[in-house]
Design a protein around this nucleic acid. Structure first.
Lengths: 201, 201
DNA sequence: GTCTATAAGCGGATAGAC
DNA sequence: GTCTATCCGCTTATAGAC
C-alpha cells in the first residue's frame, strides 16, 4: 500500500519554467509586432522550442495572449482591490502608470491591441470590451464611494469621470511612446485625478 | 502686345481645384472604407479622373493619405484660429468631437494610425510626432491665454492640461469604437474641458 | 496602384519519441 | 508530461503584367 503522504499539489518545475519563458517571449513578440503579426513560430524560437511545443502549453494563439494579458490584469486588480479605500485605488492607479513607464513593451502591446481589437471581427474584440466595461464599473464605484465621503470635486459625475480617466490614461500612453523624454505619464495621470477629487493624491 | 495687367501671383487654378477635389474624394473614401481597403480608382472616380491622374498629384497612396491628414489638420487649425478667443477654440474642440461622432471610419483611421505610427520606423512616425507637438503647443497657448484672463481653474497648468486634453480625446475614441451606444464622445470631451476652465463651454 | 496567379507562412492537428 | 516532425487548409505576401 502507499504509505507516502499525499503529494503536495505542485506544478512541474520544468513546465513552469517553460511556461514563463514562453510568456516572456510572447510578450516581447506581441509588443513588437502586435497580435495579428506576431507569430507562434517566432515566440517558439525565442523560448527555445518549436511552435508545436508552445501549443502544448497554450492550445491556441488566443489562449497564449490571454495568458499574457491575464497575468497583468490579475496583478493590477488584486493590488487595487486589496487597498483600504477609494483614495488608495486612485493612488494605485497612478502607481500603475509608474509601472508602465518602466515597461515600454507592455505599453506598446496595450496600445497596439486597443487599436487593432477595435474591429468588430477581431478575436479580442469581446475581451477588450469586457475589460473596459470592468474598468469603467470599477472606477465608477470608486468615484461613487468618494462622492459619499464628500471627497469628489464639484460637478464630477462618477461615470464620465471613470471613462475620462481611462481615456486619458490610454491616450497618454500613445503620446509617451512618441516622445518619452517630454511626456511624464505619472504626472499627467496624477494631475488629472487630482482635478477630480478634493483629497491629496 | 499684351495689354492685360500683370497676372496676380496665384497658383494654377485648375491644378489647385483638382488637388482639392482629390483630397475631398480621398477623405471620403478613406473615412468610409479605411486606408487599406480604400482604392485609388475609387478616389479617382469621385474626383472625376483616372487613377493615373491621381498619381500625377500624389505619387503614392501614402503621399495621398499624408496629404489628406495634413489638409484636414489645416482646416481644423484654420477654424480654431479664426475664432475670437481661447474659449472659442475649446468650443471648437468639442465640435470636432461631434464631427468625429458622425465619421466612424475616420476615427478608426486615426486610432489605427496613431497606434501603428508609434513605431520609429513607420513612414508616418515623424508626421505624427509633429502633429502632436503642434497640437500641444496650440492648446498650451490657448490655456495660457485663458490663464491671463483669469478663466483657468485653480491648479491647472497649461502644458499638462493640453497634453491631458489631447490624451483624453484620443482615448475616448477607442472606447467609442468599442461601444458606441454607451460612450458619448462629445459629452466626455466637453465635461473634461469644463473642469479645466471657469467659463461655460 | 491594381489585378492575378503563385509562393510563403500562418494557426492548427496528429502521431509518436522520450 | 514534454516536445519534435510533419502535415492540412487557409490567409497573406509577393511578383509581374497592365
Amino acid at each position: 500500500m502507499n504509505t507516502d503522504p499525499a503529494p503536495a499539489p505542485r506544478r512541474y518545475a520544468k513546465g513552469e519554467a517553460r511556461r514563463t519563458a514562453i510568456l516572456e517571449a510572447a510578450l516581447d513578440v506581441f509588443a513588437t509586432a502586435g497580435y495579428r503579426n506576431g507569430g507562434l513560430r517566432e515566440v517558439a524560437a525565442k523560448a527555445g522550442l518549436t511552435h508545436a511545443g508552445v501549443r502544448h502549453y497554450f492550445p491556441t494563439k488566443l489562449d497564449l495572449l490571454h495568458a499574457v494579458l491575464g497575468w497583468r490584469d490579475e496583478q493590477a486588480i488584486r493590488q487595487m482591490s486589496s487597498l483600504d479605500g477609494p483614495v488608495g485605488v486612485l493612488r494605485q492607479w497612478v502607481e500603475a502608470a509608474r509601472y508602465n513607464q518602466n515597461a515600454p513593451r507592455m505599453v506598446e502591446l496595450q496600445v497596439a491591441l486597443a487599436a487593432e481589437a477595435t474591429s468588430a471581427d477581431h478575436p479580442l474584440h469581446d475581451y477588450l470590451r469586457e475589460r473596459y466595461e470592468f474598468a469603467v464599473g470599477f472606477l465608477r464605484g470608486t468615484f461613487t464611494a468618494l462622492a459619499a465621503r464628500g471627497e469628489l470635486a464639484d460637478g464630477v459625475e462618477p461615470e464620465s469621470a471613470a471613462r475620462g480617466l481611462i481615456a486619458l490614461t490610454d491616450g497618454v500612453q500613445t503620446q509617451w511612446l512618441l516622445d518619452r523624454e517630454h511626456v511624464d505619464m505619472v504626472e499627467l495621470v496624477r494631475s488629472a485625478i487630482q482635478r477630480l477629487v478634493t483629497v491629496e493624491i
